[in-house]
């Protein structure tokens, strides 16, 4: 079952073309990794999936991005609701300078949940899903910024999970983390993928190989920036890629 489907998706920053005719079907409740060299358009593509690029002036998307069959670029899309359904975790953990509890409760409060008891339930459930509960349960009032970077990133994941999204986008979520914290996030992704559709951009090919079910390889050439070269089950892409360009990239013989 496809959760997200793009049809002839092109993207432009001003006159600069950044994605070229992307057609992809992202399976529901699986982890899809986007890999490719810098400038291949993978982050741009990720940010198209919840219209995060709208915040950048003079950008333009052409084509369709279908979430459960509905085009998220159609004029009647409620973008705030879209971003609740399609949450995002960034490269650097970005907790608010507030308590652990308030960080996780932020989204539910914005959505109108005020009951202290219900909020406490949501916060606990979200922190548990993010694998952070046992580490913070004794001091939910502590400043989120006092946590380690790995904990902060899991807090950000808890903050996304708290608004009950359907898709979680992750833009290099481990690039600021040490190897142990990285493996914790990867385990967490695996656990979350039973409930959520996860799309992750990573520079770390080993991470894509370890942690994803499907892999998309993107590349730019002289004429066309941001092409999707190959998409398939991760095990196939890393053992017998179909395209020579994928092969060259994943074996480290690119360029």
């Amino acid at each position: 079952m496809d959760k997200i489907k793009t049809e002839h998706l092109y993207f432009y920053y001003g006159r600069k073309q950044a994605l070229w005719d992307i057609n992809i079907a992202i399976p529901e409740r699986h982890i899809t990794a986007l890999i490719g060299p810098s400038g291949c358009g993978k982050s741009t593509f990720l940010r198209c999936l919840n219209r995060m690029n709208d915040t950048i002036p003079r950008t333009r998307a052409e084509g369709k991005v279908l979430l459960d069959g509905q085009d998220i670029y159609s004029p009647d899309t409620n973008v705030v609701e879209l971003r609740r359904r399609v949450g995002m975790v960034f490269q650097r953990p970005n907790p608010f300078p507030a308590s652990v509890f308030d960080n996780v409760a932020f989204g539910p409060r914005v959505l109108g949940l005020y009951s202290r008891a219900e909020l406490a339930d949501v916060v606990e459930e979200s922190l548990r899903s993010a694998g952070l509960w046992d580490e913070v349960k004794d001091n939910l009032g502590q400043d989120a910024l006092s946590l380690s970077l790995g904990q902060q990133q899991r807090l950000c994941i808890a903050r996304v999970v708290a608004v009950k999204p359907e898709v979680i986008l992750m833009d290099e979520p481990c690039s600021a983390l040490d190897p142990i914290a990285t493996l914790k996030i990867e385990d967490l992704m695996r656990a979350l993928s039973t409930e959520y559709t996860i799309v992750i951009v990573t520079h770390n090919m080993q991470q894509a190989a370890r942690a994803s079910d499907f892999t998309a390889f993107m590349l730019s050439d002289a004429e066309r920036t941001g092409q999707l070269i190959e998409f398939g089950p991760t095990a196939d892409v890393f053992t017998r890629p179909r395209d020579k360009r994928t092969e060259d990239y994943i074996t480290g013989r690119f360029g």
């Binding site: 090919m205 190989a209 890393f238 053992t239 890629p241 092969e247 994943i250 074996t251």
Partner: peptide
């Protein structure tokens, strides 16, 4: 070396 694809094969 974490070989991939043809190297791994």
């Amino acid at each position: 070396q974490q070989p991939m694809a043809r190297d791994l094969r």
